[in-house]
């Protein structure tokens, strides 16, 4: 059964889109990630124009993050103040990102830039995660306990000015790195169509030393608002959010996620991380191959001028 995507302007098999959404939802539930970094490349592999894939991916992340955020809100594992400071940076970053996005589109380099960014980000993060999880697996095998980091250990981040007190997180931290992190993630949201949790969570833990119990909830809080904002801005400036595609992906995704969560609870953390790392690497490599392999046609045509 085919369905016509009005914004992507092509007909697709609805079952492939449903399957894609369910599979990514399953993985996102299993690994506790938003899934934007998987859905956007998958859509691009399925010939959805990258412009539409990115904007629709951001929309899909709103749905996949919301139930997690609600859970964390109920449990109280969410630092509203920290989240709001992150959000200030995130909204500014998303605005700047959409501007860069439109500019890249105008000069004809958007598709390349999206792919390059994905290749760099996915391969480096995949490699880091794989390294870390293999080390953890080896440690577990040898029965060596995890070296405990001394609390109160500080790095350069903690010497920055403009310090603020975040009561819930029980930390006293400069606003500069928090806003900066939010900004960077916001840019990635609008250019790559990701929530950015897979970068934000490690950065908050290792760089900002925020207690792990509030990290996930707080990052989800920021992700929801930034992705929702990005969806609106992409819709308003590039007209590239496909509501039909997004709805199919979201419905399949949230259902898939429920089953993913159950499977995820049965697997061990480091195994899970190693699997995710391999998946991330595979997507990155597939995109890299697409950049290197000689295209079937070196010419392409687009309606509209390069600059008016």
């Amino acid at each position: 059964m085919t369905v016509y995507l009005p914004i992507a302007e092509l007909s697709v098999n609805i079952f492939i889109i449903l399957g894609m959404g369910a599979a990514v939802g399953f993985l996102s539930g299993m690994f506790g990630v938003g899934g934007g970094f998987l859905i956007t490349p998958l859509l691009i592999f399925y010939n959805i124009p990258p412009v539409v894939a990115v904007a629709t991916g951001a929309n899909q992340v709103v749905a996949s993050s919301i139930s997690g955020a609600i859970t964390h809100f109920r449990r109280g594992t969410l630092d509203m103040k920290l989240g709001s400071v992150l959000l200030v940076g995130g909204l500014a970053g998303a605005t700047a990102g959409v501007w860069v996005f439109s500019w890249l589109r105008r000069i004809g380099q958007l598709d390349l830039f999206i792919s390059l960014l994905y290749v760099v980000l996915l391969s480096s993060i995949g490699a880091l995660m794989l390294q870390e999880s293999v080390r953890a697996m080896r440690r577990a095998k040898n029965n060596n306990p995890l070296p405990v980091k001394r609390p109160g250990q500080h790095n350069w981040v903690h010497r920055l000015p403009l310090k603020m007190r975040f009561k819930k997180s029980k930390i006293y931290l400069s606003a500069i790195p928090v806003v900066g992190l939010g900004f960077g993630i916001g840019v990635l949201t609008s250019i790559m169509g990701v929530g950015g949790g897979f970068i934000m969570v490690p950065a908050m833990i290792y760089l900002l030393r925020i207690p792990t119990n509030v990290v996930v909830g707080t990052s989800l809080f920021q992700i929801i608002f930034v992705t929702a904002y990005t969806t609106m801005v992409q819709a308003a400036t590039n007209y590239s959010v496909d509501i039909v595609l997004a709805t199919i992906l979201m419905v399949a995704g949230v259902i898939g996620a429920q089953y993913g969560v159950r499977v995820g609870q049965k697997l061990r953390g480091e195994q899970l991380r190693a699997l995710l790392a391999l998946l991330v690497l595979a997507v990155g490599i597939r995109l890299a191959v697409g950049l290197i392999v000689t295209p079937s046609d070196v010419y392409s045509v687009a309606v509209g001028g390069m600059s008016y």
Binding site: N59, V62, A63, S64, I66, T231, A235, I243, V251
Partner: peptide
């Protein structure tokens, strides 16, 4: 509307 659908679906 796109955002609203996402919120309703997720929620």
């Amino acid at each position: 509307l796109c955002v609203l659908i996402a919120i309703i679906t997720g929620w």
